[in-house]
Amino acid sequence: MANTAPKPVRRSLGDLSEGTLGTLMLLPTAFLLCLIVVYPVGRLVYISLFDWRMNLPNAVPQFIGFEHYIYALTDDPKFWEAVYNTVLITVITVPGALVVGLGLALLANLPFKHRWPTRLALLLPWALPLVFAGLIFRWFFNYDYGLVNDILARFGIGKVLWGTEPNLAFATICLVIIWKSSSFMAMILLAGLQTIPRNLYEAARVDGATPWQCFWKITLPMLMPSIVVALVFRTITAIQTFDIPYAMTGGGPGGTTETLAMYIHKTTIDFLDFGYGSALAMLMFLVSLVATVVYLRIIQGDKE
């Protein structure tokens, strides 16, 4: 009986079942993801449960559970002001950038002879670093030396307090964000527009459709997948808005343009309060997560 025992099998990689092989090949990616996503997020959650101050490196971090979260949600007016500003910026600039970006994309898609100037104009705002955009527009809207007030003065209109009047400061920030982000929108939408077959339009025209009807019945429905993708990316970056208000107003006047990302930066980098800063970052992460889930639902709903 003993000599009928099977020989020890030496398997080569080729003999692995497809599932095992697949798992093996996913391991490096999974490891990398753990390193750059799972570990930092886990660490963030961990730190957010402590009273952890980097400006007192010798003090032992105290475990305080969810105290930071409770304080932020129930007792910190600065947090709610920052959330309000962030939501307002998102609600204004995401649709704003979509409309402007769609217009730009349609323009760039027109059969001009020389399309490159339009496309270059599309790319330039996108290629400009955010902080530079903020600083440039800060000078545009400067009270004493700004271009905008100078132009207004030529039309006999008095100087406008762009940076002091909170609604104007907020409006200028939204304007710059829309200007800056609509080119990104336009590029994604332009790619979408180019996949729409020309013959659809030709057929519609034969049937006597107006350009307006073509836009509503062909362009928009065919472009929907691109629009949703662009909206997902744009919304998440809008929730994280930091650079432009930071460079333009520094959160002023009186905190009326301070976004959640700026408040996190202030808490973590200026105050070195890593515990509370981490809790605030977790809350922002949750907001981004909710927004993404909502969009994903919309996409899936579309497919069914």
Partner: peptide, 23 residues
């Protein structure tokens, strides 16, 4: 105070708000 950055932020943000007329 060792927490001067926070003290400073509280005063300057509020003063800025009053001067701007938002508070």
């Amino acid at each position: 105070t060792p927490r001067y950055p926070e003290v400073s932020e509280i005063i300057r943000t509020n003063v800025n708000g009053v001067i701007a007329g938002t508070k």
